[in-house]
Design a binder for these strands. Structure first.
Lengths: 185, 185
DNA sequence: GTCTATATGCGGATAGAC
DNA sequence: GTCTATCCGCATATAGAC
C-alpha cells in the first residue's frame, strides 16, 4: 500500500457521510472538499469525476454493510438468538443514529433512472441484504416463503428509515426491526 | 377563476411528472419548460422560484392521492371487499406503471433535511396515508394495533416501490399490496 | 500529492419588449 | 401572459506550479 491510498480512503469515508446526509446532487465537490479539509481539485487526482467518486463511496458502503450482514446470517457458530442480537445491533449501528438514512435507498430514488453506473452496486446491496434475511428465515420457513418474508422485511425497514427521517422518530425503524424478529419466535 | 389558472395547473401537472421521474435537483427549470412547451421564464410569472413550484406540485399530488384515499377508507356505503378493491385499483393507478415511483418518498430522501418548505406537505401526505389504512384495519383490530399495522403497510409499500424502481420488477409492490389485504382476511 | 488559478458551462432568476 | 435577452453565481473539471 502506498501512502496516498490512505488519503483516498479518507476522502471516500468523509464523502460517504456528506453524500449520505445531503444526497448526490446537493453535495458539491467544494462541499465535500471542505468537509475533508482539502481543496476541491484534489478529488480529481484520485477520481475521474464526481460519478466515479460516488461509485467508490457506494462500493465502500457495500463492503461494510451487506457483505458483513451476509456473513453474520450464515455464521453457524452462533445460536439463533445470538445471531438475531448481533444483526439487530448491526442494523441499529448503521441506521438508528444516522440522520441521512440509507445512502443506497437515497441513491436509488435520486438517481437510479439515469445513472447506470450506480445500478450495479445498488442491486448487489439489496440482493445481498435480502439473501441474508432469507438465510435467517430459512430456519423456520421453506425457501420460497423465506424469500418473500426477507423482501418484506427489507421493504419494511427501508420504509421505516424514510419515515424516521421525515418525522425524526425512531419508532418506525425500531418497529420494523421488532417485526422482523417476531417472524422467528 | 381567471384564464391563467388553466396554464398554471398545466405547468404544475407536467412539472409533477418531470419531478417525479428526474427528482428535484436533476429537473432544471429549462427541462421543465421544454416538457411543457413554454419558455423557462414563464415559470417565474406563476411561481416565485423553483422551491415554490415544487411545493405547489407536492400540494397538488396530496390533493389527488391521500386525501382521496382517506375518503375511500371512510366510505361506509361500501362493503369491506368493495373498499379493498377500490383502494387496490387506486394504488395501482398511482404507482404500478409509474417508473418514477412515489414523488413524496423521493422528495423526503432527496431534500427532507434541508428544505423545510416541503416538510409540511410531506408529513401531511404520510400521516393521511397511515390514517387511511388505520381506519381500514380498525374493522379487525383495535386502534393501537391498527395503527402499527398501518405504519407497517405504508413502510412495506414504499420499500416495495423503491425496489420496483431499482429492479424494474412489479412484484415488490404487488406483494406489499397483497400483504396489506391479507391482514383483513 | 496537494495546491492556485482558471476555463467552461449550466442553473436559477430578472428586466423589459410585445 | 408569454417571450427574448441577459445577469450572476456556482458546479464540474483542467492546467500547471510547487
Amino acid at each position: 500500500m502506498e501512502k496516498h491510498q490512505d488519503t483516498k480512503t479518507e476522502l471516500i469515508l468523509k464523502a460517504a457521510q456528506v453524500f449520505n446526509q445531503q444526497g448526490y446532487h446537493q453535495a458539491s465537490i467544494s462541499t465535500l472538499a471542505e468537509a475533508c479539509g482539502v481543496k476541491a481539485s484534489l478529488f480529481y487526482y484520485y477520481f475521474q469525476n464526481k460519478e466515479d467518486l460516488m461509485e467508490a463511496v457506494l462500493e465502500y458502503i457495500l463492503g461494510i454493510s451487506t457483505q458483513k450482514l451476509k456473513i453474520m446470517a450464515a455464521d453457524n457458530g452462533l445460536s439463533q438468538t445470538e445471531k438475531l442480537g448481533k444483526i439487530r445491533r448491526f442494523m441499529e449501528k448503521l441506521y438508528l443514529h444516522n440522520p441521512g438514512g440509507c445512502i443506497m435507498a437515497n441513491t436509488v430514488l435520486e438517481t437510479a433512472l439515469f445513472s447506470p453506473k450506480f445500478i450495479g452496486v445498488l442491486k448487489t446491496f439489496f440482493s445481498e441484504w435480502i439473501e441474508a434475511y432469507q438465510l435467517l428465515y430459512q430456519s423456520h420457513y421453506q425457501a420460497e416463503k423465506a424469500l418473500e418474508l426477507a423482501e418484506a422485511t427489507v421493504q419494511d425497514i427501508e420504509g421505516g428509515i424514510m419515515l424516521m427521517k421525515l418525522y425524526g422518530d425512531k419508532k418506525y425503524l425500531m418497529n420494523a426491526l421488532a417485526r422482523s424478529e417476531r417472524l422467528l419466535l
